[in-house]
Design a protein around this nucleic acid. Structure first.
Lengths: 340, 340
DNA sequence: AGACTGGCTTGGAACGATCCACACGCGGAC
DNA sequence: GTCCGCGTGTGGATCGTTCCAAGCCAGTCT
């Protein structure tokens, strides 16, 4: 691989080097089966000698496709990273690279407008498709993109729009909590409490239903054993303490690791040992769950698989292949640690 | 803003709508000062009416610049996210969007080759510049890119190549630890131990020197008070326990939050209360530091500012403006919590 | 032998923007 | 009245790729 002149080699350079026409070189790259073996070989060698790579802008311009997938990163909330999104993003980048796509990140610069960025990238044909990640808070992205005919796949169910027909991938939170509750049942727990989020959060209600249903299926009580509030350490602590004093549960299942960490605080304040006196299970398998003493059992979302499925659906959508089942619900797993 | 036909409007469409030539429209966008006020106004109105955005591929092709910044995401280690990188990435996306750039992510698909991806994106003129984030492990990216004349800015010092002249931004780990130690000194601690990484890690030695220097400056002992090992919870726990038994330090400063969490484990196993009996300080201000009981004091890297500086340097580099000082070392802050 | 087929290759046009050189109109100076 | 200069606006060429229609050649069938 050697560079000749100051300027990067083009199709024409390669064609000259190989003694063929430009189109032949193009075919060697895009439809190699059209070439005779020896010609193909000669062209590939020339490509290698010159160190040629097709110019993406030119290709984009002609084919009207950038091989770029747009993903909007949401504003950081109070200085904290979103480790979930990070795991997802990594896997998304890898999966899409494998099929020849790259991920383009953009931000909601304009602040107020929830469509900020999408429109511009779409009109300037900068990306071929989007991955939409925040479908739950009543965001109009999905509907807007769909109306506009823009290809996209959502990570997250269209909770408030049951009529939506776009492809999506999501994690079955209910199944995850069921897993957690069944794990506790196996360990002999019967008084299992729930600490979750306020009503109105679709995801929160979904997770809670996993607890509620499983308890009822096993004929166990739920009344008085449920607390709801905001997703903070402090609420988790207060809720867990109140539950412990009033209802004496032997286990607490939480809608998030944050709440679960709060519950751990509450336990240690009451002189109770997590995992020995009272079991605690969280949700998301965050780093905190791994390193906080004594180690928090937690529901782990299969974000790597989510990304793979997202890319699979995107591929189908972009190649206009039929999408057999646009909905894909993945089951989480349970990572058991000392807290249960 | 209305769309007319099935196809997206082009410069020519806008020109026709406004009754001017294509170049005039182009000037309206790129050099508005060349137009008479009324003409400019007419063109802008036509742009708005048609909902026109310049085609990025065409612009890219002509100007030989994509307005894209490449960033390679490193493989995920044992299923964990890298929250630091996530914070940095968010801020990088925002900062670069503000100056009209987008971030393109790619992965090291080929695995072994440390230059995988860089070369391809560069040759295909897919990105204008790179942000390199892993300069410490003796990675050849920086040198290779520099030799190749490719614009890039590094997040991280060229530790092992003092002769490097490329622009970089980094966080002053030593100053961060100094901050931590001085904070402990103020609280009256004198026997302050260090739990860090093995020799050979530049970053590790840098952070450690912050402890060592500050202790010596204040005439305090360091012998026997330093432990080194791998960056795991378990090592942190073992090291802290050994130190506590042998040397009775009243405070422990750690090279990472992971180690610090291990130290917290060790304390609770020995029946000691973090922050009351023994103070613990971590590094990185991870989510774990915030939520783990009782709350871990930690050194916080100013990743948001790092990103801003990276973009600033990139901007200079790409506009061929002189870079007055290619090196930028930022000071961390200390987030104080109950563990100290 | 001539027509026809199929595999491979060819030059020209197109994608949509920017760069370049020139044309135009207008006012002021000689 | 002519010429120049300045501020604006114009058509044509260009970036590097892919699409298109047609060309070429060898081999086969009639």
């Amino acid at each position: 691989m050697v560079r000749r002149s100051g300027r990067a080699p083009t199709l024409a350079t390669v064609a000259e080097e190989a003694g063929v026409s430009r189109q032949t070189v193009s075919n060697a790259l895009n439809s190699p089966h059209l070439l005779r073996a020896d010609t193909l070989d000669r062209v590939l060698r020339a490509i290698d000698v010159l160190g040629y790579s097709p110019n993406r802008a030119a290709r984009s311009l002609r084919t009207r496709s950038s091989h770029l997938i747009g993903l909007r990163v949401e504003p950081v909330v109070d200085g904290n990273a979103n480790p979930l999104m990070d795991r997802f993003l990594h896997s998304l980048v890898e999966s899409s690279n494998e099929v020849g796509y790259h991920v383009l990140l953009f931000s909601a610069d304009g602040a107020s407008d929830p469509l900020a960025g999408y429109d511009d990238l779409l009109r300037s044909t900068a990306v071929d498709a989007f991955v939409v990640t925040d479908t739950y808070r009543g965001n109009p992205q999905a509907g807007w993109l769909e109306a506009r005919g823009a290809p996209f796949v959502a990570f997250g169910r269209p909770w408030d729009e049951p009529g939506a027909t776009h492809p999506w991938v999501d994690v079955d939170g209910r199944a995850g909590v069921r897993l957690a509750v069944e794990h506790l049942l196996e360990r002999g727990h019967e008084r299992i409490a729930w600490v979750g989020w306020q009503k109105g959060s679709f995801i929160g209600e979904d997770r809670r239903s996993g607890w509620h249903e499983t308890m009822r299926t096993h004929g166990l009580p739920t009344t008085g054993l449920s607390a709801r509030g905001e997703d903070t350490l402090e609420f988790g602590r207060r809720a867990a303490r109140a539950l412990l004093e009033a209802e004496r549960p032997t286990a607490v299942v939480c809608a998030s690791d944050t709440l679960a960490m709060g519950a751990l605080h509450a336990l240690s304040e009451s002189g109770l040992r997590a995992g020995k006196d009272v079991a605690v299970v969280g949700f998301d398998d965050s780093v905190a769950a791994q390193v906080a003493p004594p180690g928090l059992t937690s529901v782990r979302q299969p974000l790597e698989r989510v990304a793979v499925e997202v890319v699979r659906l995107l591929g189908k959508r972009l190649s206009h292949r039929p999408i057999d089942d646009p909905a894909c619900l993945l089951a989480p797993t349970l990572t058991v640690r000392a807290s249960s």
